[in-house]
Design a protein around this nucleic acid. Structure first.
Length: 470
RNA sequence: GGCCCGUUCGUCUAGCGGUUAGGACUCCGGCCUCUCACGCCGGCAACAGGGGUUCGAGUCCCCUACGGGUCACCA
């Protein structure tokens, strides 16, 4: 069965680069009715892996990814790794090396001075004598010293390394007995039945080492797919400083998970000219062979555009429930659909959406000075007073936007007014600024009684403000 | 520095030997209009450079330049 995995080291949170490779792995597995596993690479034991795993699962949950089986923690599998180390030792495919760190450092320095590639010289490879005193040995694997290691990368094509260029007898167990990364990755991928390894291309040069382990242990090789990195807008490696890189930060900034996923799936992968992909479409169309060979830069504007797109097309229920996270509770508002429709085309994030909603729902606490200065004069105040009086006694048919439109047009006709003369003053009275959705929508959402109240309050404020002259 | 990978508008990309090199984001015009958005219409903008192969190269090969990755008892 096709099986993929996501295998992060426990850094404490999931960033978008990780999310993208996780997404690719997930999609490929699900598309093929396979399995998607999660493994925490915590062999160095320095960080809190359980917390890190929880953070990853939280992010997965938010975006809608799910993994199969229990999470595998490498830190809990040391006995297993030891077995394989012993096996290689017994088969003489690995050996103890008694070289001290100091000696190793000295060797490295010497090689660098001669401009040679730093590498272990194999001095204990066939050692039979008495081990030196006081040195806890490391275990090194016998790697080929000549020949070529070639594999077919599902994204980059055939890749080959000359053994002499990149390999030495690398350490598979440290002096304290703990196993090292390239060793355990190969074992776990093999034992977990991973058939397709999809990972960042920073792992490309680890691959030959892992292949050495696969071969020494007699495991079948998986297919490798090395996904190019995501760069920052300056073309440099993406770092935490390039924005809020924790995936959950995007939630706090008001992004919809489907927008983030759409953004990420499309960053480095494409399907013709298509830009918008539903989760279902990703599942149907994703294929790692269509992943680009080159790195791509993070593009915040495109993400924003995608987010705006998904907000525009979200259901009322969805938006209303999302908005609650941002302090806007309109579930019981009698004009909630009108409110949502008035704002969905204007908001790029849920944070903006919430701010705009609040501006309409709550009566303004202050009025934008520039707007007042520009649109309010004595004539405008007079119009507002008349309009308030008119609305106040208008027959009881003012509910939806067209009701207000009809009434307002009659008012304008009666007083020979143009829309421009009325709209801005009313808008300022309603929301405190010269920017808002259509006044008819705002009027409808605010409701007749409060419309009158807000206008009266505004007029009162204007008339009592001695600092302004009209 | 060695090794590996990469290079189409500013950005994400389509292209898979013959195209006026297409789409999307951004930006700039215009339309719509009660403001702001949305939407619609239009515009600016790219094959890193040089050699080959070929009737013909963004597409194939080589070199150069540039960019990235990696060279640990980190993962």
């Amino acid at each position: 069965m096709l099986t993929t995995r996501f295998a992060p080291s426990p850094t404490g949170y999931l960033h978008i680069g990780g999310l993208r490779t996780a997404l690719y792995s997930y999609l490929w597995a699900r598309k093929n009715s396979g399995r998607f596993l999660l493994r925490i690479e915590d062999t160095d034991l320095k960080r809190n892996s359980k917390e890190a795993a929880a953070a990853i699962e939280e992010a997965f949950k938010w975006v809608g990814l799910s993994h199969d089986d229990e999470i595998v923690y490498q830190s809990e599998r040391f006995d297993l790794y030891k077995k394989y180390i012993q096996k290689l030792l017994d088969e003489k495919k690995a050996y103890y090396c008694y070289m001290s760190r100091e000696e190793l450092d000295a060797l490295r320095a010497e090689q660098q001075a001669k401009k040679e590639r730093p590498r272990y010289d194999g001095r204990y490879r066939d050692f039979n004598g008495t081990p030196p005193e006081g040195v806890e040995p490391v275990v090194r694997i016998k790697a080929p010293t000549e020949g070529t290691i070639t594999f077919e990368d599902g994204i980059k094509g055939e890749i080959s390394f000359k053994a002499e260029d990149i390999l030495d007898d690398f350490i598979i167990a440290r002096a304290d007995g703990t196993p090292t990364y390239n060793f355990v990755v190969a074992i776990d991928d093999a034992l977990m039945g991973i058939t397709d390894v999809i990972r960042g291309d920073d792992h490309l040069s680890n691959t030959p080492k892992q292949i050495v382990v696969y071969q020494a242990l007699g495991f079948d090789l998986p297919k490798f797919y090395h996904v190019p990195m995501i760069l920052n807008p300056n073309g440099k490696k993406l770092s935490k400083r390039d924005g809020a890189m924790d995936v959950m930060e995007y939630k706090r900034m008001g992004y919809l998970p489907e927008a983030l996923l759409n953004f990420l799936v499309r960053l480095g992968w494409s399907h013709g000219d298509q830009e918008i992909f539903s989760f279902q479409e990703m599942l149907e169309l994703f294929d790692p062979k269509d992943i680009n060979k080159s790195a791509s830069a993070y593009n915040a504007e495109k993400l924003l555009w995608l987010n705006a797109h998904y907000i525009k097309n979200a259901s009322y229920e969805r938006l209303i429930s999302e908005l609650q996270e941002f302090g806007v509770n309109i579930a019981d508002h009698d004009k909630k659909e009108i409110l949502v429709d008035a704002l969905r085309d204007r908001a790029k994030t849920l944070v903006e959406f919430a701010e705009m909603a609040k501006a309409i729902i709550h009566a303004p606490q202050h009025y934008d000075e520039k707007a007042v200065k520009k649109f309010i004069n004595n004539e405008a105040i007079e119009i507002l007073q008349k309009y308030a009086a008119y609305i106040k006694i208008y027959e009881d048919t003012l509910h939806i936007p067209v009701d207000f439109e009809k009434a307002t047009k009659a008012f304008m006709e009666k007083h020979a007014l143009k829309m421009k003369q009325l709209a801005q003053p009313v808008r300022i009275a309603m929301v405190g600024s010269s920017v808002s959705p259509s006044v008819y929508d705002v009027l409808s959402i605010v409701g007749r009684d409060e419309v009158v109240e807000r206008i009266e309050k505004f007029v009162k404020t204007l008339l009592h403000d001695d600092t302004k002259s009209f």
